[in-house]
């Protein structure tokens, strides 16, 4: 898994660096986060920390607020109150949301969300625009990432011709394209068979172990929960540790 976090030639984002606090040792810090949709309180004063280099699974019944929490961490949504820090960056008050999504986190969706008309390599390279890399560098980086996730022979394949596991691994490669320190995954193995789910989880494990990447996945999937080194359970909008450190 070498060089996964070192996209050569990528520029440092000074605006984002100015927002980073060196005082927060956690990869993710969530404090008293509340999110309401109308009269429904989906998250009710949720607080937790995620240590760097850990693999955390957030579980809970449908409608418990797992995906809402992930969206808040990814700055795709805003909490009504509370604070969220990812890599020391205050996500709630951040103005450079696009830069944050591009540089700090990698998002993996349940339905992979690949562009069907583009090849695997092109899908991964799509995440590398606006990074200062040239077309050749983007391609080389995308091919390298696909090799790292075990898809060296599927670089030119388009999503409709790939299996569910292959597509999800392409999505993981895309999430890794900008060398994020945090991967946020929404049911990444939910629609995969055992072999495919196993390969994606192996990948997360390798990222955590070899690169120190923090992985936070929300999931119903017991296969994923069993591989995580920490499990958080959401119920009634509140979070309670159910195991692990």
């Amino acid at each position: 898994m070498s060089d996964l976090l070192e996209p050569a030639g990528q520029r440092t984002d000074r605006r984002l660096e100015r927002q980073r606090s060196a005082d927060d040792p956690n990869a993710i810090t969530v404090r008293d986060v509340t999110r309401r949709f109308g009269d429904t309180v989906v998250l009710d004063g949720v607080s937790f920390d995620v240590a760097p280099g850990s693999f955390t699974a957030v579980t809970g019944p449908s409608g418990s607020g797992k995906t809402t929490l992930l969206h808040l961490l990814a700055a795709l949504d805003h909490p009504d109150s509370g604070t969220i820090r990812v890599n020391g960056i205050d996500v709630v008050h951040l103005h450079q949301l696009t830069r944050y999504r591009r540089r700090e986190i990698g998002l993996v969706f349940q339905l992979h969300n690949l562009v069907p008309r583009l090849t695997a390599e092109q899908n991964v390279a799509m995440a590398l625009f606006d990074t200062g890399l040239g077309a050749r560098q983007r391609k080389a980086r995308a091919v390298d990432l696909l090799e790292q996730v075990g898809l060296a022979n599927r670089v030119g394949a388009k999503p409709p011709t790939m299996s569910g596991g292959e597509r999800q691994r392409v999505a993981v490669a895309r999430a890794l394209a900008n060398g994020p320190r945090v991967i946020l995954a929404d049911e990444p193995t939910g629609s995969l068979d055992d072999d495919s789910a196993g390969s994606v989880l192996d990948l997360f494990e390798a990222l955590r172990a070899d690169e120190g990447v923090t992985v936070l996945a929300v999931s119903h999937d017991p296969r994923l929960n069993a591989r995580a080194d920490r499990l958080l359970r959401l119920a009634d909008g509140r979070i309670a540790p159910v195991g692990g450190s």
Binding site: L76, R99, R102, L107, V115, M126, F129, D130, R174, N178
Partner: peptide, 16 residues
């Protein structure tokens, strides 16, 4: 629409 949403979520700027 979905594709544009994905592009925004992976860090594409509005300008791009």
């Amino acid at each position: 629409v979905r594709e544009f949403g994905v592009l925004r979520s992976i860090g594409w700027s509005r300008r791009r």
